[in-house]
Design a protein around this nucleic acid. Structure first.
Lengths: 206, 206
DNA sequence: TAGATTGTTAATCGATTAACAATC
DNA sequence: TAGATTGTTAATCGATTAACAATC
């Protein structure tokens, strides 16, 4: 069983719980967290059960303890270094977006076909030429790859990443990727998303 | 009935069909399109039925005609101007990504809290100060908004967009948005996506 | 205790998959 | 005709929602 939606929501809960913790909130009920997360109380309760945490009918969930439980599930306490391929506009925006935010999930290497980018450090991340991908991925113990190259190059980049040992890929290229050996692929297709929004914006659902 | 997945896949089919058309392919069977799209033949057939198109058991689907049918469903022949809010790293990458690609779905205005950005033209898109949002959205007949501001500002920006008449929002801010009146919201949460990939990369599914 | 919330099971919903008669 | 594909219906699957006994 792979509860995709639960994993996605846990990431959001964690952000909200950290915020609550910073504000000194010590306990939260399922309906309170649900409201913040745009979920239902039942979803929150089921998701929290999934991470092995328990609450109290009178006090709800302890914020700090719940953060620990979610962390155990999402991170497993492990550092998982990430590689980015494609240092164009989107790639640089991704580097900026993640820079310094995720200690356990940092982008530690970037690759680009343009040899002029090799050696530069962009948003705290060192750039390498494409040819060094296998070597750097293995050397740094990288297990997650982010693909931000044009559609034409995406499949080849993916194959190289997988051969180097990457086990999961976040794909921003507007094309479906094939990855073998149980490698997990998550697609973020911005064109698809925008066209979907445009379609439903036209439907009258008020 | 709102077949979210079908709408998303149609966007992908269209891209693949345009490519096939450019290469001179005139007909495609459901299993051929399915293979290209990473879908099943049954999904393709059902999706095509949804847009009101029919194929032939001997020749499959006519590429040009199918493109027309999908276009009718996705675009309705209408121009739907788009507004972007937040011209930071991510906002500029989004402008570059969509620039010149979608005649019916062009980003025609960008807004930013930094007054120094007003008046500039970035990747073909004119920037305005936040204060002019309602005015420009109404003037340009904008129906779709893209939110690329920090999480703290996202809800307020959304409220302003909705008040100005936007009917659909693509949200890149890492926070859930509330929109009333049947306004459609699609979230692209990159943090959530990366954490999901990291989680499933750790699971052994080979 | 009374009352609200938790954890969990059953019912529902939406989407996918399997199956097959109709078709070219 | 024989054979492969289409369009569509029934079965399955996964996730959400509703419901409720157990709990503090």
């Amino acid at each position: 069983m792979t509860p995709h939606r639960t994993i996605a929501r846990l990431s959001l809960y964690r952000r909200l719980l950290r915020q609550a913790d910073r504000e000194g909130v010590q306990n939260l009920f399922s309906h309170e967290l649900a409201k913040m997360a745009g979920a239902t109380a039942a979803q929150v309760r089921r998701d929290i059960t999934f991470v092995g945490h328990s609450g109290s009918p009178t006090r709800g969930y302890d914020v700090r303890e719940l953060l620990d439980s979610i962390g155990t599930t999402l991170d497993a306490g492990q550092r998982q270094p990430v590689a980015l391929v494609g240092v164009g506009n989107l790639g640089r925006a991704i580097l900026a977006f993640f820079h310094g935010r995720h200690p356990n999930l940092a982008i530690v290497a970037a690759f680009d076909a343009d040899p002029h980018k090799a050696g530069r450090v962009i948003h705290g991340c060192r750039c390498y030429p494409m040819e060094q991908m296998a070597e750097v991925v293995k050397g740094e113990g990288i297990t997650v790859g982010v693909v931000a190259v044009p559609a034409e190059a995406a499949q080849q980049v993916t194959d190289t990443l997988v051969r180097a040992g990457v086990r999961g890929i976040l794909n921003f290229a507007p094309t479906p990727l094939r990855a073998s050996g149980g490698v997990f692929v998550e697609d973020i297709d911005m064109t698809m998303a925008l066209e979907k929004v445009a379609y439903f914006a036209r439907q009258d659902r008020s």
